[in-house]
């Protein structure tokens, strides 16, 4: 109400009404200022013991989400995985992961792997990190592959669950901030 109850501003505003009507728009609109966008989602996997690291990035900078290449994993392997989110449309790039780390009580990642038809590959994801209420977050996970090779999709959903609606197990509550699917190959 504070904002509204400024009748003394009326005359100023009335002045504004009169004076700003000739403002030009010759320069056109400035660059689009989306409040907060996530343009880039990156998965980095480090195997326990020996083996190759694996990474994959999905970016929407050029419009629709595009993955830079398949996430190639080895069968029967346990990986320590981290996910990072960024807004690369801004300069410098905004690290959204840090914002999530500051509010882990409001965020939950949901990981689901679906094998391609005809493929018996399996990928399991276990969330390692916990928020202040000891509920899962999902920035850090353990990803383990089964014995079968094949291809599939790893879907990553980030739920924003503010105001105490996070239970840790409710994966439908809140607003979806990210919903992307990584192409995965298990060799």
């Amino acid at each position: 109400m504070k904002k509204l109850l400024r009748p003394y501003l009326a005359f100023l505003l009335m002045g504004a009404l009169l004076t700003t009507t000739a403002c030009g728009d010759d320069d056109g609109p400035g660059p689009d200022e989306e409040g907060e966008v996530i343009t880039t989602v990156m998965l980095s996997l480090v195997p326990e013991g020996k083996g190759q690291n694996a990474t994959a990035t999905i970016s929407t900078l050029s419009g629709s989400p595009v993955q830079n290449g398949p996430l190639t994993l080895k069968a029967n392997t346990v990986y320590n995985a981290t996910i990072t989110l960024a807004d690369d449309s801004k300069t410098p790039s905004v690290n959204v992961t840090n914002e999530i780390k500051q509010k882990t009580n409001e965020h939950l990642f949901v990981y689901t792997f679906t094998p391609e038809s005809g493929s018996n590959a399996s990928v399991g994801v276990e969330i390692k990190d916990r928020d202040a209420n000891n509920r899962p977050v999902g920035l850090e996970t353990t990803i383990n592959t089964g014995p079968n090779t094949g291809a599939g999709k790893l879907r990553v959903i980030l739920k924003h669950q503010p105001g105490g609606i996070k239970t840790g197990t409710n994966t439908t509550a809140g607003e979806t901030d990210v919903d992307v699917s990584f192409n995965v190959i298990v060799n």
Binding site: T21, C23, D25, G28, P29, D32, E33
Partner: peptide, 15 residues
């Protein structure tokens, strides 16, 4: 009429 905006895009500037 003269329309302008600031922030996220919804409709363009127009006269």
């Amino acid at each position: 009429q003269n329309n302008t905006y600031q922030g996220r895009y919804f409709i363009p500037f127009f006269r």
